[in-house]
Amino acid sequence: MEKKKPIKRHEALKPLSRQHHFGLLFSWKLRKGFGKNIEIERIQKYAKWFYEHEIKPHFKDEEKYLFPIMEEGNELVERALKEHRRIKRLFHDTKDPEKSLHRLEEELDAHIRFEERVLFNEIQKVATEAQLEKIEEIHSELEKTPDYSDPFWD
């Protein structure tokens, strides 16, 4: 079996990649919660907290600083923006929270893997040093997200 080489990430993009790691961890925590038959309300409460503290600022940063590096109408950026909209809807869906959380767990995971394996690599190829410095400057001011108070996944 062929072993994949780790992706060499530019220093400026590492904070966003680290946030992606937390997104993958979020999906894992949802899976653990479902596997332990945790009440949907508890999982939903965590998802709302995660959206406010992690997803919302992360999407905002990507859309404001990272995606504009690519040419207007770039199909990879268009795909990412479409996925952002779908993921936001899943976080806010109250009609069938259990179904939405299951879909969210899968779609967020797939979205992060697309951004990490495809989109970020393309952005790295075309970004100027000045653009990367600006991204690095913005992320040097990031505050640590507080820990969530109900670790149902343990």
Rank of each mutant, 00 (worst) to 15 (best):
18 R>G: 15
144 K>S: 11
134 K>I: 05
88 K>T: 15
17 S>I: 05
49 W>M: 06
13 L>A: 03
33 G>T: 04
149 S>C: 00
87 I>T: 08
31 R>F: 07
112 I>N: 08
56 K>M: 11
33 G>P: 02
6 P>D: 14
80 A>C: 09
102 H>W: 05
41 E>R: 10
153 W>P: 02
18 R>L: 12
55 I>P: 00
48 K>E: 13
29 K>Q: 15
40 I>H: 05
89 R>S: 12
66 L>M: 09
12 A>V: 07
135 I>R: 01
22 F>A: 08
59 F>L: 13
62 E>I: 10
78 E>G: 02
24 L>Y: 01
16 L>K: 02
128 T>F: 06
154 D>Q: 12
21 H>C: 01
121 N>Q: 15
38 I>V: 15
30 L>P: 02
129 E>I: 03
101 L>A: 06
69 I>G: 07
106 E>W: 00
124 Q>R: 00
69 I>R: 04
85 R>L: 09
24 L>W: 09
25 L>Q: 15
135 I>F: 08
118 V>Q: 13
44 Q>W: 11
15 P>K: 08
117 R>M: 07
83 E>T: 10
153 W>Q: 01
145 T>M: 12
45 K>G: 08
22 F>S: 14
27 S>R: 04
107 E>K: 10
63 E>C: 05
136 E>W: 03
59 F>G: 01
63 E>V: 05
74 N>V: 07
82 K>S: 15
58 H>I: 02
43 I>T: 02
17 S>Q: 05
146 P>E: 14
47 A>F: 02
22 F>D: 13
48 K>M: 01
104 L>M: 09
26 F>S: 04
147 D>A: 12
32 K>V: 10
134 K>L: 14
48 K>Q: 12
36 K>A: 11
133 E>G: 03
90 L>R: 02
86 R>P: 00
18 R>S: 13
84 H>G: 07
42 R>G: 12
106 E>M: 02
68 P>M: 05
27 S>N: 07
7 I>T: 13
18 R>Q: 15
50 F>V: 06
63 E>L: 05
139 H>Y: 13
26 F>W: 06
116 E>C: 04
148 Y>F: 15
74 N>P: 06
47 A>D: 00
83 E>R: 11
42 R>H: 15
23 G>H: 14
142 L>P: 00
48 K>D: 13
62 E>N: 13
40 I>S: 08
91 F>T: 12
59 F>A: 12
138 I>P: 01
129 E>C: 00
139 H>V: 03
43 I>M: 15
27 S>V: 01
53 H>T: 08
66 L>E: 03
111 H>W: 07
16 L>V: 00
144 K>N: 03
58 H>A: 07
